[in-house]
Nucleic acid binder design. Structure first.
Lengths: 136, 136
DNA sequence: CGGAATCCTTCAGGATACTG
DNA sequence: CAGTATCCTGAAGGATTCCG
């Protein structure tokens, strides 16, 4: 056994650290620019395409459909088409999607809760960096 | 009040959906390409720069230092310099960093646990897409 | 050892227009 | 309404070199 490699059993068996490994690929997908937000918007129940577009401030229609397709492909989101006129398409989390979505929501919640703390740290850091070397 | 806007109180007060809002900025940072992995690698305790580089398969020195600086700036990571020769620099999670790191680790764990499920869904989706319209 | 600086490439993602 | 199809740009990120 390679004893030079640190023991990292706590992080999903450390597989997530190895690129080109499955867990890492999934982690990359989940932490993609929009996936977290899209899944968050679906936590309360099914949503239609343009409804999601309104909720997700700043997302383009291209990125929304791209993200939704990726999530559907991975079994996290189910897409239901009602062949009415005009057409209606619902997106909702699958069981698998809900289990991941809960975790992602926790991150979003953390972000909201600790926003001020983080921004304070940021200001402090920037002020320190602005100071010159330390005059005598 | 704008009643056309859906009720989304479950997602950090929904602030995370608004771009240019603090929680959203933090969420973007946390879900950045490397932040999750870097914080994960620090969960077990302090690590040195090149140690992290070895753990984080595929990261370049530039991205590692960039990510670490961003995390330090946001008060999630503490950087300690020991003025020895050769120099030694330790990175470790702050209290704030540990609280976020735990949540990120949960995501990584989820990725490892459900990797097979997700990849199976992916294969199924790709096969369905490959089929032509449906011959009689 | 632990970086900073530079150059260079690629591709994520935005804008726009069109369609069933 | 719910998307596709292009085109195009900026910035993320890789490779390389140099430094205290």
């Amino acid at each position: 056994m390679d004893t030079t490699f640190p023991d990292l059993r706590r992080y999903g068996g450390a597989d997530a650290f190895l690129r080109a490994c499955k867990p890492r690929a999934i982690l990359d997908m989940l932490t993609g620019k929009w996936s977290t937000l899209v899944m968050g918007a679906l936590l309360d129940g099914p949503r239609r395409f343009n409804e999601l577009r309104r909720i997700l401030d700043g997302i383009t229609q291209k990125m929304l459909s791209q993200t939704l397709r990726a999530l559907e492909r991975d079994g996290l989101v189910r897409r239901t088409v009602y062949p009415t006129i005009p057409p209606r398409v619902d997106y909702e989390l699958t069981e698998l999607g809900r289990s991941a979505g809960g975790l992602l929501a926790a991150i979003a919640e953390w972000s909201a809760e600790h926003a001020d703390e983080v921004f304070a740290a940021r200001r402090a850091y920037d002020e320190r960096a602005a100071e010159p070397v330390q005059p005598i």
